[in-house]
Design a protein around this nucleic acid. Structure first.
Length: 289
DNA sequence: AACGGGGACAACCGCCATGCA
DNA sequence: CTGCATGGCGGTTGTCCCCGT
């Protein structure tokens, strides 16, 4: 099969990493960087395949990892991003500094899914379970992935209902945030986003706005900004009119280039834009009604 | 104290996309 | 163009630990 040749050519260690192995990997990457992952185990003196080394570094040894339990804000953000992106764990992780896709995926599968179901929400569709049950069942031959692709709104192809909702949501939120001058959303992304940034950074911290964890009902949660993590550092987040929004994640090891996340393609979708401005409890409330 | 169930987390597996020879 | 090596991603499994019985 398409198994990585380096993984089976030799008898390589599998399973949990020992502290000694961790130390070797850290020392090597700190000193030389990872370069080509397939050469890392050899150079670092490890009986592992490069893929295993890469995973260990990314998910556990990287110095910029946050560790520890997820805050409620982080969980809320994950739910909101999942509603937009689906199981795109790496994209979701990109919005949560210090968190890995694996960590988020584990949290989703072990905890968040269950919480959503307990509250009567289908974790795949983010719709009330009763609605989902009434929808056409997937044919027995279709696997989960196929089903998900057909029922989850996507950036490229949001459902009509969802599209309309977010468009309306966006308009309302825009008005609430006194951003009327930026309401021509179809043709001026730069204005849209400068508006968004004004909005994002000038809002006072919002109380929890989550269907998951309850919320203060007298708060206009349409103003909450799911794209602003609690430890957001505005000095490292830039909007470039030519290239889009860059979210600089912390540097990894000795690497000098930050990972840029380009937002252009998302911004061109009213769907995503609505998500940015109006997501959170109002969205989920809408879906629950 | 022993045991079993469930949750949390780490790691592996298989597939896909990409770059390069 | 083709095949291979590699990196990256999402799904799944394995392992450990805690807690209730």
């Amino acid at each position: 099969m398409a198994r990585h040749s380096t993984c089976y050519k030799q008898r390589l260690r599998k399973g949990l990493w020992s502290p000694e192995e961790d130390e070797k990997l850290i020392k090597h990457i700190t000193k030389f960087g990872h370069g080509c992952w397939s050469s890392v185990p050899k150079l670092a003196g490890l009986q592992r395949c490069g893929k295993s080394c890469r995973l260990r570094w990314i998910n556990y040894l990287r110095p910029d990892l946050k560790r520890g339990t997820f805050s409620q804000q982080e969980e809320t953000l994950i739910v909101e991003l999942h509603a937009v992106l689906g199981n795109k764990w790496s994209q979701i992780a990109a919005q949560l500094p210090g968190r890995t896709d694996n960590e988020i995926k584990n949290l989703w599968n072990s905890s968040i899914k269950k919480k959503l179901r307990q509250r009567g929400i289908d974790p795949n569709t983010h719709k009330p379970l009763s609605d989902v049950e009434n929808e056409d069942k997937p044919s027995p031959r279709s696997n989960n992935k196929t089903h998900q692709q057909t029922i989850l709104p996507s950036i490229e192809n949001p459902s009509l209902e969802t599209h309309e909702f977010f468009r309306n949501r966006f308009t309302t939120s825009h008005e609430n945030a006194n951003l009327a001058s930026h309401t021509d959303t179809k043709h001026n992304n730069t204005d849209q986003f400068s508006g968004f940034l004004d909005f994002a950074y000038n809002q006072p911290p919002q109380p929890e706005s989550s269907l998951l964890f309850g919320s203060s009902s007298n708060t206009d949660t349409s103003l909450s900004n799911p794209f602003q993590p609690t430890n957001w550092d505005t000095t490292t987040s830039l909007f470039d009119a030519n290239n889009g929004f860059h979210n600089q994640v912390p540097l990894v090891g000795n690497e000098s280039q930050p990972e840029d996340i380009k937002w252009n393609k998302y911004l061109q979708s009213p769907f995503m834009f609505g998500a940015i401005f109006g997501f959170g409890k109002p969205c989920l409330d809408h879906l629950a009604n």
